[in-house]
Write a protein that binds this DNA or RNA. Structure first.
Lengths: 257, 257
DNA sequence: ACCTGAACACCGTTCAAGT
DNA sequence: ACCTGAACACCGTTCAAGT
């Protein structure tokens, strides 16, 4: 077996998959700012230049890493027109995403024009999963909006999101607006939340420290806001805005824009 | 006059302001990715190392540049409780921001609890101006959400936004949620729009090229979406989502969350 | 007080050379 | 086919030296 045991001690042979996995792990652990080809190579027990055999360049590396992250986003069951028992997956949304009650809208309507598959639950499920994924990989949201290429997992994500809206009755201009409004909220919230990403407990120390040297008289409302965030987690902010948007869209959907 | 004419030929002496101005101009023209201390120095007729006399380091340079951009955001007139004739400034909002009619909400209510100053118009004005500013300086939105320090102009922006909401009756948790939902929309939309920032006309070429090598059968809804964006500008997407959010917030305000 | 030159410890990427 | 070493053209930042 000369091929399999190419390397004597441990290390399996390098592949694109192993490079991308190591890249994601490294970015998760140390941030994407300090990730260099040379350091990533070292992590894999290889000279940095060897990576160019499996990756075109650093942008290609980033695209591959980002698509791995995109693949983690939990899309609602394929639920195409011909797919059976979509309801079997939807209930779990209620379990894992309990905040739906914040603003009842679609549920209370007995609309004959309503689609068989609740578009609102599907969009909500996808958005919550995307948000959680961005939080798991704090470097990924910034990359998502940068101009790195779009891989197959991201394409699938986008296609699914657009299809769900389309099948719910959104069309043309309104479809486009609905789609972008939801996506903007996801990526905007992730970026803002991650801009202040701090280790647990660090928030209190930072906030207190900040307020000490802060011109409270000059910016009293900002000071109050910081004080608020030192005490409250604000965990529900994402779903609050999401529900606000989804409710508004549902209203426009039934009235036809 | 030995001090004023320190330099013989032209060039005024270097100051922090001149460094920041040049930084903004350079980032506007060539992007922030290629802005280096050395190249910025050369632009100013100086060795890159000289910049460290006016700027602590590159992060400090970025903070200063970003705060200059923040200062460009047009805040609604001070309009504090004691400020007279706020109405004198608000009308211009209607002129420069004509899309308000998209979804009537606050105007039609004759609410005795409504604040004297229309919070919705003020929030809308500020958001539209912030959005336009981010578009003028395509590098700034990404910096806004990064962890560079917050300068005085940004503090003033944040304090004003929070005060307006506070004086409109939003309090505690709802104030925080309303604030973040609007800010997320602004920054999220800017980042997404700028991720595809292309020169005018470039869009058609890119979209057509992309669709040629695109697996249309695999992602039909995404393909349709791209086709749509080749033809339509989607200029109104920002204000659409903004109105959706502001309308939803107004509803929660009058019902008390 | 402000600027320069040299230096340090890094980058991404290419390419001939090895196996 | 895959990896290495050397090289190229860059980085941010520090610091002694100049004026």
């Amino acid at each position: 077996m000369p091929k399999q045991a190419g390397r004597p001690s441990g290390r399996p042979t390098l592949t694109r998959d192993r490079v991308l996995d190591a890249g994601v792990a490294m970015a998760d652990a140390e941030g994407i700012g300090t990730l260099s080809m040379r350091r990533l190579g070292k992590e894999l027990g290889v000279e940095g230049m060897a990576l160019y055999n499996h990756v075109k360049n650093k942008d290609d590396l980033f695209e591959g890493m980002l698509d791995r992250v995109a693949a983690e986003i939990d899309l609602p069951a394929t639920g195409h027109a011909d797919a059976p028992s979509v309801g079997a997956d939807a209930p779990s949304a209620g379990a894992a995403v309990p905040g739906t009650g914040s603003a009842p809208a679609a549920q209370s309507r007995a609309d004959p024009a309503a689609p068989r598959v609740d578009w609102r639950s599907r969009a909500r499920w996808r958005a919550v999963s995307a948000h959680a994924t961005f939080m798991r990989h704090p470097w990924s949201a910034a990359l998502w909006t940068s101009s790195v290429g779009v891989g197959p997992a991201r394409m699938r994500y986008l296609d699914t999101a657009l299809r769900d809206l389309r099948e719910a009755g959104f069309a043309d201009g309104l479809l486009d607006l609905a789609f972008h409004t939801v996506e903007n909220h996801i990526v905007g919230h992730a970026m803002q939340e991650l801009g202040f990403s701090l280790a647990p407990g660090e928030m209190e120390a930072m906030g207190a420290e900040l307020l000490r040297s802060f011109p409270v008289e000059e910016y009293p409302f900002l000071a109050e806001h910081i004080r608020y965030h030192v005490e409250e987690t604000g965990d529900d902010a994402f779903e609050f805005g999401l529900d606000l948007i989804l409710d508004g869209l549902e209203r426009l959907r039934v009235t036809g824009g």
